[in-house]
Design a protein around this nucleic acid. Structure first.
Lengths: 188, 188
DNA sequence: ACCTGAACACCGTTCAAGT
DNA sequence: ACCTGAACACCGTTCAAGT
């Protein structure tokens, strides 16, 4: 039952545009042209640009959460999770040098409508929470605060590797950074 | 001898605007209003927005290079350099949640005029080069490739910590990430 | 040498009007 | 319920015109 065809089409093209160029570069007129309607129609589905941005970020978080929860339910595969997790952030780079939507939006932070900002925070929290769970399974003795700090650091470091690799337009920079994180022990 | 007063004023206000909101959000009309001229005058000094962006990034790299070279010439202070270096990226966060200009521009990568992109790359190279020098002094035996990889990873991780802290609007996230980098051995 | 006003095609947003 | 054309104040850019 394909309810809301136009709405779906809008979200799909807008998502790619944000990951390619950021929230600021997202244009209602470009979205409309790609979908085959007029920009006023986009406003019918998403009254403001902030509404569209927030909807995109919310869906993005949901998709990641589903994906990560899927990994968690698999038989305990030791340190393979680190590989799977970093791959999540490697994929968009391979796809036309795109970025994690939350990463690129974090850079635009002070320019963002508050409802978009809130969704970006939610994405970050979901990542740190998932990483904390996995880490605490690996090191049952460690303090919750230490775990939490390392989870945040892993997330920050991977986002940074993606940011720098994108800035250079070179996935190899991402791979080298991840490799160094592993060598230092930041990543298992 | 204050040659080019207007040009200087333009660069000073534009720099703050970019670090606050990114290249995309930089507006010639806003810059002009802040300086007290018309936007057409800004175009007289910087024909295109790309010219202004590239000039800002170039100066930004020069200032960082001077600062880092100053640190290098000081008597060898063991591991203090890591503190000094991370402070460079902590400072803009404290200053109205601003970001490293290269970091925020890296996020806007595919939207950037090529001349701006080139300057962003130059900034990254300058950082990796400086970090490599410092690291190789500390570990005279290590391979050049390993040093280079760790230098890149340190830069990426610190940029990531800044990005995430900015996204949360909370410097504590930066400090916690740096602390975890240190605990893991990524940072000395 | 430096600045300006006016024009151009863009942008998000609004709204009355269409089906 | 969904879409549109037209208008508004914004944007970078250009250029002839001023001093």
């Amino acid at each position: 039952m394909p309810t809301n065809d136009t709405r779906e089409a809008i979200m799909n093209v807008a998502r790619l545009m944000v990951q390619a160029n950021g929230y600021n570069a997202l244009s209602f007129r470009e979205v409309a042209a790609a979908v085959g309607v007029k920009s006023a129609s986009v406003h019918y589905h998403f009254p403001t640009k902030g509404d569209l941005g927030a909807a995109l970020a919310r869906r993005y978080t949901e998709e990641l959460t589903d994906h990560l929860d899927g990994l968690k339910s698999q038989p305990d595969n030791g340190e393979k999770w680190a590989q799977y997790y970093t791959d999540v952030f490697r994929t968009p780079l391979m796809n036309d040098n795109r970025m994690c939507m939350a990463g690129i939006m974090a850079a635009e932070h002070s320019d963002l409508p508050t409802e978009v900002r809130a969704e970006v925070n939610r994405f970050m929290d979901a990542n740190v929470r998932w990483l904390s769970e996995v880490l605490s399974k690996q090191r049952p003795g460690a303090e919750a605060e230490t775990i939490q700090r390392q989870a945040l650091a892993i997330f920050a470091a991977i986002e940074g590797a993606q940011l720098i690799a994108r800035g250079r337009g070179d996935v190899a920079a991402f791979d080298q950074s991840i490799e160094a994180y592993r060598a230092s022990g930041l990543l298992p």
